[in-house]
Nucleic acid binder design. Sequence first.
DNA 1: TCAAAGTCAATAAG
DNA 2: CTTATTGACTTTGA
Length: 466
Amino acid sequence: MSSSESVKSLTELVQQPCPPIETSKDGKAPEPSDPPASDSQPTTPLPLSGHSALSIQELVAMSPELDTYGITKRVKEVLTDNNLGQRLFGETILGLTQGSVSDLLARPKPWHKLSLKGREPFVRMQLWLNDPNNVEKLMDMKRMEKKAYMKRRHSSVSDSQPCEPPSVGIDYSQGASPQPQHQLKKPRVVLAPEEKEALKRAYQQKPYPSPKTIEELATQLNLKTSTVINWFHNYRSRIRRELFIEEIQAGSQGQAGASDSPTARSSRPAPSSEGDSCDGVEAAEGPSAGDIEESGGPAAATKSQGGPAEAATAPEEREEAPRPAEKAEPLPLGTVASDDADEEGRPRVPPPPLPEGPAEGPGPMPNPAATPAAREDAATSAAPPGEGPCRARDGADRSSALPSTSAPAAARRPSSLQSLFGLPEAAGARDSRDNPLRKKKAANLNSIIHRLEKAASREEPIEWEF
DNA sequence: TCAAAGTCAATAAG
DNA sequence: CTTATTGACTTTGA
């Protein structure tokens, strides 16, 4: 639809901030705000801020692959540097609550693992980062909020004391609150440490317990069945996330020296302790360490054989390379990385995957974008239907910042959209210190894997099980 | 109907 | 206060 045009303009808009180095802030003018019209999408619920003439969903749909980890990192920096809270940021910019923001910032999932909806916050963050006035705007909001708060305080009580004591007395208000009842509010279940332990143990043996098992657990622990069910859902999902970040971090930490130590896993300080063992969560690939398991025989259970192995040591991912092919091809997309190494040299990191590159034939896949349709034609890429001619070859993408990969690349230009979103990175920031390389590399691998999986499922099955 | 992903919202921890 | 954690709910997809 008409988007192409707008896209273009937006592109420019967003683009601006980035590339240009720091020129200091300057005055800016544009400020997009206010989109005319808009809407169209049925969903435009969020009261979001302003910019965005195109619905974010559209942007999300065409967004190139974003470095979620990098984005969150930068957002955290900006927020802390300016003393801006997650609540404000979340409500104002992302349309999410503080807890969600905290979680998102602390454990971002890799782009390719996110659903369209899940990508939305990242696109918003990227857009926000690109906005030169971002901090200012938030600060203004902050001020306004404060003001309102003060005002409220004042008016309510004039001098001295305050506030709110309405209470006592009676209740007017609320006409009929829904159930004013005494505390029928739902107490919020809080599982005791031992209960969690037991659940974790059960998880190690069977991440997907049967209803019967669930019932048993519930009975034994004296919990509601639904609580147990929810716990498993949450735990599985959280474990998965934990792995993602570990993957990323592992990737980024690479170099260093050789041997090195233990790399230790990060693991949070687990307070745990207790002796027990493991929480699977962190386990991840342990170097052996201790590991897990013990008793019980977890393994034993596995009947399987084909099954996902599970447990044993860690939740792992199923991915794995069917057969390692040696090097894979040049990585697609610019990311590239320098590669250093490789070989199997890295000490750990089993779970992840080696992608192997099965040929892929012609193209180094472009990765990103389009999850949908990727294959369809990579060529045109982004442009949705129709037109497209916008850019044909203009190639040159500015993104060339990097030394382009090597060669071939043939791939395709990522389209300006890519630059749209940023990828700036740049600048030299003073802080830099992390290595984006590995990160990107990891992201790429993941992406490849993801695509392969998808393809496999929808196309001929190659049987690569694990 | 099940699971996963995404969030909310209460509350724990700083 | 602010941020982190986490049980429960809601949305999506199959």
